[in-house]
Write a protein that binds this DNA or RNA. Structure first.
Lengths: 341, 341
DNA sequence: TTGTAAGCGTTATCAC
DNA sequence: GTGATAACGCTTACAA
């Protein structure tokens, strides 16, 4: 009989089912070489007892924990949290748990810290969020340490079992198409920081589309930010000074786009009357700012779920390449260009 | 000699130091009954080998993991993430890791789910964020299961070793004092949802201060929201209709305050010219909205760190009560009331 | 197809 | 003070 105070163990199941521990273990691990009758018998007892294998004991025996790690250098709170939700979607009702680990990509010790962390915690696998997901040394470290990993990125950073990707470049192209269709010709870009692959992809999408439409991109129409609000203000100030005649602005993320709103407001430029603005991320601020912002939404939560599944169940979701489509969310920050004076 | 492939174990340390495993274990666990010489000898070997105790093995033997859990029903992404950072501050360079677990407070199975989670994962302790931190049944469940817990709240929800609290009521009183000092007399309140202690505390602070100043709070000056943006829009619409003559508005959180901005903008009411608005939380939107919002900031990260320390090192931080002061952050959404017409 | 014995790395028990 | 020895709950040889 199972102890009343604590939860039943594999021994309880074995005794009651009249089989050995090992057989129960086989059932748990879905060993194929089991007689169907035995399996059913054991499963029945498992269900009756409400038995759950102890992850700590398994961790010790397998030398690997049932912990998924989320490594990130917080690009954006909402993104990280949505990602966490997605991972939880994948591991709900499993024995896995999610461990979070913010890291500092600017620290020279980052890799060493992570190595230490992985060594001590013996994680089953880690999920890598941009921008650190773009760090190849980090991926190599994971491989070296026998720790599973999946990278989330906006480009083909790795083989498909280690990658979940979005189509940033394409969707930015479609953003520009949309603006051009409305009549915009002088479109500005606030690009993200140099180290970020997402920034590069979005920039390339912008340039490709502009080129395709036969539109010029003078130097004065491009400014760089660091994905933060303030840098968006600054970048927009640069783009909107003088007579650049920019009528629309694509910012590489919503925070910078919000900064552009701010700059426009300070200069008395009406959005979208005199200036259309498009962001990227569909973060809460996009919906809450005035006027509500047209932006690009990507299915982080679904991507996270897929990434986690690749880790814990490579059979099902692992092999197939996972590219998730981002899409334009139109709100009120875009309109036709002002009539030329 | 330590194996080259994997990390050294307690056996390696014991063998090299010429003592028994148990003695090494005693060193690790700071047992007081050890000869100083022995301790030093062992510690030296530990340092040389770079030995770290295996948390999985300890978890099995102690029937308790070295995992801290963060249970939350996401009130706000930035809050949750800041909290995570604070916990990480506390557990950095320890063997502890942080496991996150979003829950759904509206699900009838919430308690059962959490019980299951705690039973399987055998967490060392959990951190409870509002609003679920206010659930006494949940706290009782933790006690029953022998799982440590610390609640984060805006009132004295529990004994001091289980509580980290903020002074919402007081700080809201000071917000009202500030508005009154500027000349406001008709001040509106957008309060939070009924189930939330924080909402109640903030409301009471509001009412207490108004009363102290001899100011009336007519029914038309109070509206309830649910802490979300949309509810803020709706509530503000109610408050600003008719001839309520409200010149200032305190919203129980920033999201709803942002909703009030939105409503004011739609009605053509200038902020702060015709209407002053104060929020609560100092979330990113407060800084990014236009005009930048005056709001209340509370030290979540420090509170989180303190909460985690209470759990993992009750000796140091545990006994003493922890009330953390929130403070007003003045930006540009507040001004004197418009001249009476 | 199933069972036995040994081990994963730690801590608890109880002698010495 | 310290050390054998037996747990902790599971898995992996290897046997049967």
């Amino acid at each position: 009989m199972a102890m009343s105070g604590s939860s039943p163990t594999i021994n309880d199941v074995a005794r009651i089912a009249g089989v050995s521990k090992k057989t129960v273990s086989r059932v748990i691990n879905r060993s194929p070489l089991l007689k169907e009758a035995t399996r059913e018998k054991v499963e029945k007892v498992i269900a009756e007892l409400g038995y759950t294998p102890n992850p700590q004991a398994r961790a010790l025996a397998l030398r690997r924990n049932f912990l998924l790690g989320l490594l990130h250098d917080n690009p954006n709170a909402q993104t990280v949290l949505n990602f966490q939700e997605g991972v939880l979607d994948a591991i709900r009702d499993t024995e896995f748990a999610l461990v979070v680990r913010p890291v500092d990509r600017r620290s020279p010790d980052m890799l060493e810290d992570i190595r230490n962390f992985l060594e001590v915690q013996r994680l089953y696998g880690v999920l890598l969020l941009p921008p650190i997901s773009e760090n190849d040394e980090l991926a190599e470290l994971c491989r070296d340490m026998g720790c599973g990993y999946v990278r989330m990125g906006s480009a083909a950073l790795d083989t498909s079992e280690h990658l979940v990707q979005s189509n940033d470049r394409e969707v930015v192209e479609s953003v520009i198409d949309y603006l051009v269709e409305l009549g915009h010709r002088r479109i500005g870009l606030i690009e993200g920081p140099s180290g970020f692959r997402s920034a590069a992809e979005r920039r390339e999408g912008f340039r490709a589309a502009m080129k395709r439409h036969g539109l010029e991109v003078p130097e004065t129409a491009v400014a760089q930010g660091n994905y933060r609000f303030d840098s968006g203000v600054e970048a927009a100030n640069k783009l909107l000074q003088g007579d650049t005649q920019i009528t629309a602005l694509f910012a590489s993320n919503d925070e910078m786009a919000a900064g552009a709103y701010h700059a426009a407001r300070e200069k008395g430029i009406a959005v979208p009357g005199q200036l259309s603005i498009v962001g990227f991320d569909n973060s809460p601020i996009a919906a809450h700012i005035w006027p509500p912002m047209t932006t690009v939404s990507w299915p982080i939560r679904e991507m996270a779920k897929s990434a986690a599944l690749k880790l814990i169940d490579p059979g099902s979701d692992g092999a197939k390449p996972s590219t998730f489509p981002a899409r334009l969310v139109t709100r009120d920050s875009v309109g036709p260009p002002p009539p030329t004076t």
